[in-house]
């Protein structure tokens, strides 16, 4: 409990906010991994594309700007699925990961070319900035966007649980995640299930884009890149094989980042990434199969 002694309520609120955003990203990555066994490294670039859309439409009404953001991100997700994921469906997980790594750098470079047309790097997205105002709750400053992030995360996870548990398409997605080939033999239409997972993951990316842009209104080509790396590592630490452990892993690494940030002395906060990733390696030593995995995982995957 002495960790909590040095961490005040403010830090905890911010940590929960960050954890909620990372949990959303983790769900987006985990959904696609479930049906395709594909770790989408370019997920952060979907968020980046959404953020640029918000920046370029900042003269529009807020609702229109956010709608455009969702439209662009979902369209880009579907394009990515059609152009990259589908031809790779039979490849090994490592090949798929490297390909999405290439796609990530490709999209980032395209963003750079688009961005530096006005000779500056970074575009401000001002229309959504009002959400960043703080409101005071019992002496703790809570930014509105933190409430939005936590709210969106809870609602999204709740809806997702209903969707996966109560609907036919959800059942098909779970079946596909458990054993794709058998699911297809039993009449699950692969393209439909995959497209559905990709759209859901795109919706989540767009939501994350809005939240992150509110928190950090200067959009640059490497927007959300660091966050994606952190979330990917978090997803692995939590256990990538199941959606819930992956999501918990995403939340945990966000929460831990927030808490460590608050606990480190001010002059040491530059070492925050080292502290977080050192913690990750420690967890991996103790629980190589994943922090939330049940029992001991087999060393060899799916033989």
């Amino acid at each position: 409990m002495n960790v909590l002694a040095v961490v005040d309520a403010q830090t905890l609120v911010d940590a929960v906010g960050l954890g909620a955003v990372y949990a959303l990203m983790a769900v987006g990555i985990g959904l696609v991994f479930g049906v395709l066994r594909l770790v989408n490294f370019a997920y952060g670039q979907l968020v980046m594309a959404g953020a640029y859309t918000l920046a370029f439409t900042s003269t529009w009404p807020v609702a229109g700007s956010i709608a455009a953001c969702f439209a662009v991100v979902i369209a880009l997700s579907l394009l990515m699925e059609r152009a990259v994921f589908r031809p790779l469906r039979t490849s090994s997980p490592a090949v798929m990961l490297v390909t999405t790594f290439a796609v990530a750098f490709l999209l980032q470079s395209v963003a750079l070319i688009v961005d530096v047309r006005d000779d500056t790097i970074g575009e401000p997205a001002s229309s959504v900035a009002p959400l960043n105002q703080a409101i005071s709750l019992a002496g703790v400053d809570v930014r509105k966007v933190t409430l939005v992030a936590v709210g969106v995360a809870i609602v999204a996870l709740g809806l997702l649980a209903l969707l996966l548990g109560r609907t036919t398409i959800g059942l098909q997605m779970r079946a596909a995640a458990a054993d794709f080939r058998t699911a297809r033999l039993l009449g699950v239409r692969a393209d439909r299930v995959i497209a559905f997972a990709v759209v859901l993951s795109g919706i989540l990316a767009a939501a994350v884009a809005v939240i992150l842009t509110v928190q950090n209104p200067l959009v640059s080509p490497d927007f959300a890149l660091k966050d994606t790396i952190v979330v990917l590592v978090g997803v692995v630490v939590g256990g990538i094989d199941r959606l819930w452990t992956a999501t918990l892993g995403g939340f945990a690494i966000g929460f831990a980042t927030g808490v460590i940030n608050g606990a480190l002395p001010t002059e040491q906060t530059v070492f925050l990434p080292s502290a977080v990733f050192a913690l990750v390696i420690l967890v991996l030593i103790l629980r190589p199969a994943g922090l939330f995995a049940r029992g001991r995982g087999a060393l060899v995957e799916r033989v």
Binding site: V39, A94, L97, V235, S274, F277, G290, A298
Partner: peptide
Amino acid sequence: SGLAAGIATFAVLEI
């Protein structure tokens, strides 16, 4: 194991 090891090596790069 395979994929997890690959992604976890990012932790090393970052540190």
